[in-house]
Write a protein that binds this DNA or RNA. Structure first.
Lengths: 119, 119
DNA sequence: TCCGAATGTGCACAAGTCTTCAACTTCCGG
DNA sequence: CCGGAAGTTGAAGACTTGTGCACATTCGGA
């Protein structure tokens, strides 16, 4: 194993760890889109978007096709969309959970949660 | 919405974007474990592990309980384990895919893949 | 052919992340 | 009550990333 799996995983997550990249991926969930279009929705500089698109491309998460004057991007596999859905679900669950969790955490100081079965 | 959702998501993924943190989470999938134990498996300095555990704690992904002389960590919700499984599945799919994908990518230069339905 | 729009790239600088080291706290056994 | 083991924390320095800018490239149309 040249690159340990857990390191590949960490890199993969780091690739997702940028607001613009997340938004691009979410926009692409609905189908391929030209850069111009993404640019309109995202409110970042063109070159900045290009940089982030390059990161996603290198990571193999998206692919680009030139169509005449413009370049169209698309998710390279639907799995990406699936992962994003999983993340969204989990994240919102965690956030809503925190209503109850926070109380518990504050109440007991550093002796936090262990909500998983105690063996 | 104080923090836009896509930014929260990016932060969440960045939290996962570190080899030690990934490994800790994976070890904790099997149940709560004392720091000493993690330390034995991970081959990093104690203080370094502690730093990463602190990151995970702040992110709300794990919780710690002091038990006498030692501190025991546990996932704060089983959802985390679920996300890791999803990520592993997707990552391995992407890696195996790349056998075929790579050929396609190299063959057609920058005009890469759009494997999602063309609208 | 020449111009301008649409993108990508290289660079320098600001900002954030990791690792290491030393000091501190808590608990247990003697 | 003291010494040591288990963890945690804060700070400094090395390193990695993100951003904005100027410039190169590629097309399509006048």
């Amino acid at each position: 194993m040249p690159v340990p799996l857990y390191q590949a995983k960490a890199e993969f997550f780091r690739t997702l760890g940028h607001p613009v990249r997340i938004r691009v991926l979410e926009l692409l969930q609905e189908g391929p889109r030209p850069v111009r279009d993404l640019l309109a929705d995202l409110d970042v500089e063109a070159s900045s978007l290009s940089q982030q698109l390059a990161v996603l491309r290198r990571a193999g998460l998206v692919g680009a096709t030139r169509e005449g004057n413009t370049v169209v991007y698309a998710l390279s596999t639907p799995d990406v969309a699936e992962l994003l859905r999983a993340a969204r679900r989990i994240l919102t669950e965690m956030i809503t959970d925190q209503g109850g969790l926070l109380a518990e955490l504050r109440g007991s100081g550093a002796r936090a949660g262990s909500r998983t079965a105690p063996v």
